[in-house]
Design a protein around this nucleic acid. Structure first.
Lengths: 162, 162
DNA sequence: AGAATTAGTACCGTCCCGGTACTGTTTTAA
DNA sequence: TTAAAACAGTACCGGGACGGTACTAATTCT
């Protein structure tokens, strides 16, 4: 249903706490407490983020986790990809091409377009932006305009509660 | 993992076939054959689409399914919502608000922004556009610009294979 | 040496997706 | 009027992935 997993959701919350003090280093128990998550869960996620290069880890007594880069340089796309693999809104985008339809599927290329749209959107949002709850940022309705080149369609997309 | 379900995928393929001849009316067996899907699966999906108002159905011997509106008036967002419920990239967007974090969750409002971005993107793509495999449409990288108001960031988002 | 902390792996329950089958209802047409 | 064609509803089931937990190993500081 076009939804990120809970793990990813948790991961972003954890990263948000880390991003609040990009210089410091937190250990797993502290982060788990701050994010109100059970320690095993938090550990699992932090571990993954470290392996994927989003975080750097330091073992031993004064160890912990820290961001590998500045929050402005870490995109949502990267975080999501780290936690749940390649971003592919349909299977056929990611797979090796064993889809029997493949040749005669008329919508495939269009899904690629949509997927890229989503990807671009997520790449444009950085971790730093997620830290501030309600910025005076322009509303997304302006940020993402999927209108064709001829954007003269005045028909506003019926605002049904999707 | 930010993925539509197979049902939705199939549904869009079915709708694409219907959109090729918006005036005509197809029955389930024919559509299933054209889309290379097992009949029960196709029926299930068509049924749902009819109940949600995307299709109109006609029972009886010369019955079948037809689009309820013109392909240009049916958005991807509507189709996806019909087949898999409200579009909500995180649980807390859709749910009644029984999330214990709720009050102190710093990322919630930002997820709303991202969700709206996705929603707007999907609302801007119509079924009619999905029919044509490769239009000379502008590349999505231009269609969706999630840059902030100050879009002067020259740092192209590192093109890693997400 | 020992304590603290991350790393790796393995395990399990539960929910939902994907798919199938069966029965009922409506409509056309002979 | 009757039978066939087609949609409508519902129920069922297996498999896989998600969410979560536990245990052991490896590392580092004191």
């Amino acid at each position: 249903m076009i939804r990120i997993t809970k793990q990813t959701d948790y991961g972003i919350v954890l990263l948000t706490h880390l991003a609040a003090h990009p210089d410091r280093q937190y250990n797993a128990p502290d982060l788990a407490a701050e994010a109100h998550l059970p320690l095993p869960m938090a550990s699992k996620i932090l571990k993954l983020l470290a392996r994927e290069g989003v975080l750097v880890s330091h073992r031993g007594v004064k160890g912990g986790y820290g961001l590998s880069r500045h929050p402005q340089e870490i995109s949502m796309a990267e975080i999501i990809a780290a936690l749940e693999g390649p971003i592919a809104i349909t299977e056929c985008i990611d797979e090796a091409g064993d889809c029997v339809h493949e040749r005669l599927c008329p919508v495939r290329s269009n899904w690629h377009r949509i997927n890229e749209a989503l990807l671009t959107a997520l790449q444009g949002i950085t971790l730093a932006e997620m830290v501030h709850p309600l910025l005076q940022a322009p509303p997304v309705s302006r940020l993402v305009t999927l209108g064709r080149g001829s954007a003269g369609n005045t028909q506003q997309p019926q605002q049904q509660p999707l």
